[in-house]
Design a protein around this nucleic acid. Sequence first.
RNA 1: GGGCCCGUGGCUUAGCUAGGACAUAGCACCGGGCUUCUAACCCGGGGGUCGCGGGUUCGAAUCCCGCCGGGCCCGCCA
Length: 560
Amino acid sequence: MFLDFMREVELSLLSALERSGFKVGMSLNNLELDRSPHADLASSVAFRLAPELKRKPASIAAEIHQALPAEFWFVGRAECIGPYLNFFMSLRFLNEVLEQAIADNCWFGGLKEKVIVEHTSANPDGPLHVGHIRNSVIGDTLVRILHRAGCTIEAQYYINDMGRQEAMVVWGADHFRLENIKNDHAIAQVYIAAHKAMESQPEIKREADEIIRQYEAGDSETESKIKSAVKFALSGIEETLQRLDIHHDSYHWESEFVRNGDVDKVIAKLEETGLTIWKDGALQLDLTSHGFEKNMILRRTDGTSLYITRDLAYHRWKAANCDRIVDILGADHKLISSQLKTALNLMGIREPEVVIFEFVSLPTGSMSTRRGKFISADEVLDEVESRAFEEVSKRRPNESEEFRRGVAKYVASGAIRYDIVKVSADKATTFDWRQALDFEKLSAPFIQYSYARACSILRKAENIDTYNPDLLKGHDEVALIKKIAEFDLVIELAARELKPHTLATYARELAEAFNQFYRYCPVLESRDDLRLARLALVKASRNALRATLETLGIQALEAM
RNA sequence: GGGCCCGUGGCUUAGCUAGGACAUAGCACCGGGCUUCUAACCCGGGGGUCGCGGGUUCGAAUCCCGCCGGGCCCGCCA
């Protein structure tokens, strides 16, 4: 696949440079290779060499071109256009891509690390809203991408059971009735009510603090109240995640790190750094020498622990149990996560790779569970699903209701996932119903539809025993094969840089390439060898589309 | 006030980490294509001071500095 082609270009270029006596640094992409509209891979390394050699880039490029090997394997030809060196894929390479794609054996990379990805980790105080699921979708897509790249993955949910918000939930559940609605929504109601009550009765804050204190002290009645409230809310949250095909492999309660003594160990370890001080009755870590203006509080005056300390213990545990730690966090965690990294460094513990996503807000402003100001993921799923049902009913009026319901369900979940994942994480967004309900080109149904078309052709065709790949020379055929070949490159880059949106872009391009082929290259209508060759390409495309959809967590529908 | 992030056609957006050959797509708009493998599709068209101003460079959407606009954060909350 593409990485093999690229490796050959790199090696050829390196040897040509050496033969010509040119030296380039060993920095990343020192060969100045890039994908280009003019070639499958282009190098502008001549520009880099020009100043020190005091020669014109074009003449340097020509010399390098002369020194390139006479024979290639996956490279078909190399041309020199002015200062640029352009490399093109060989027919042999395209045939190899096709063969691997048909055999379905090229969709997993060679990475071997064990990675723990923590995502969602929403407080169990209400349902997931459209901001939370940006975390879930980015996290779950990264889990799938890393898995594709070859890694062993564990998706974890970190449960904040010791925070004040959970104490408020318990207080609310003690004073108000839980309505008979979806569990997480019922919890939100009492949580919101508790907060409202606190406005006129400030003593509630002290009662909540007392709940925290008792929980940390191990009071059994408090413990059972908190645990049941958490589990209750979580069951609703899981239901929502399920609809988006998002699953966690394990759950870790922050209280677990207090109970097993890890929090104390971490604090003891931080005390060894000599940077801790007692101030105003609380244990603090002075990070001013590391650029933080405020001290990090490690233990409250009343002796209870804080989120950051428990999180340090959790990360210490993660570091000991995997090769790569990935955290998905909202933009409000930027400061705290850099403090966390600094503190971990002080203890000599590997720091996590933190993927920060910017906020999702409503046209009316930012969301808040506490104030009941949010659009829940459930609402969005319901609305999108009903719109999808109308759409599929309009387009496939003769299909059974069961079929249409099934399609609508997966179109809805896919559309929401794609709508979220297609935007780069560092872009703040405003939730937009119109965009969420758009099922056209820049959306999941566009890709699902391409897949369904490929499946439809294959259903009507015989098995392909042999085929002659050399017949696939048309522009749309070649473009499609090249796009299929890019899969491994896209996965590797996305896995390395933790940028799931690049896969969304690839998915759109792949579907587009298939749709163009579909429009201009009749398959079932073609005869003999051409029919077989095109069928082979359809099968390769179907496999590529399936792998891409699966990695995005979007259901691949054989008919829609 | 300080820190981090963002600012690309009317709207949404890729490219920015590793500066290079005409700046990506979608929506909306205009026009064309279903007796042909599912038209949730395909083709063509118009539409851009890449926020503004400096700088570095042979070359800047991309790097540096300043400014403007927006978001997030600066709790013994999480």
